[in-house]
Amino acid sequence: MASDTPVQHHALVLSKVGEPMVLETRPVPKPGPGSVIIRVLAASVRSNTPHVYRDPNSGHPLPLPFVPGFAAIGKVVDIGPDATKLKPGQLVFFDPYIQGRDDLETIYVSGLMEGFTEGKDPHPLSRAEWRDSTYAEYAKLPLENCHALNEQRLLGDAKDGGLGYTMDDLTHIFSMLIPFGGLADIDVKAGDTVIIAPATGRYGSAAVHVALAMGSRVIAIGRNAAILSQLETISPRLSTVQITNDIDKDTKALRSASPGGVDAFWDMSPPAAGTSTHFRSCLNVLNSGGRVSLEGSVVSGVSFSYMDILMGGLTIKGTWMCTREQTMRLIRMVESGVLPLGATAGMGPVKTFKLEQWKEALDTAAVRTEPGEIVFAP
Rank of each mutant, 00 (worst) to 15 (best):
D169P: 01
T327R: 05
A226T: 11
T49G: 03
S300W: 07
Y203C: 11
M321L: 13
S35G: 12
A226C: 00
P20I: 07
D121H: 05
L228D: 01
H147Q: 13
L231Q: 06
A72F: 08
L283I: 10
V77D: 13
M1R: 10
V375C: 14
P31T: 11
A42T: 09
Q230W: 05
I186Q: 04
A184V: 00
E129S: 12
E360Y: 00
F66E: 09
I186M: 08
S35Q: 15
M167C: 08
G312I: 00
G59Q: 07
A199Q: 01
L238F: 09
E370T: 12
H147D: 04
Y165N: 09
F279V: 11
G337C: 07
C282G: 08
A83G: 02
K87Y: 00
I234R: 11
G312Y: 02
K85T: 14
G119N: 12
T106F: 06
N150R: 07
N245S: 15
K359R: 14
A11F: 07
K120H: 15
P349T: 12
T171I: 01
R153S: 05
G162N: 04
V285Y: 09
S269V: 05
F93K: 06
I221F: 05
D95T: 05
L12K: 09
G59H: 02
F66M: 15
D250G: 06
C146Y: 10
M321I: 12
D187S: 14
R217Y: 07
V36D: 01
L64M: 12
M311T: 11
V76R: 00
K120W: 12
V188P: 01
P29Q: 07
T49S: 14
T117W: 15
Y138L: 01
R237H: 13
V67P: 00
E105I: 04
A128F: 15
D102S: 15
V45N: 08
K85V: 14
S305C: 02
I79R: 02
M311H: 13
M333R: 00
Y203S: 12
L12I: 08
T117V: 15
T193A: 05
F70S: 12
S276Y: 08
E144L: 10
K75Y: 04
L330C: 08
P270A: 10
T319S: 13
Q242R: 14
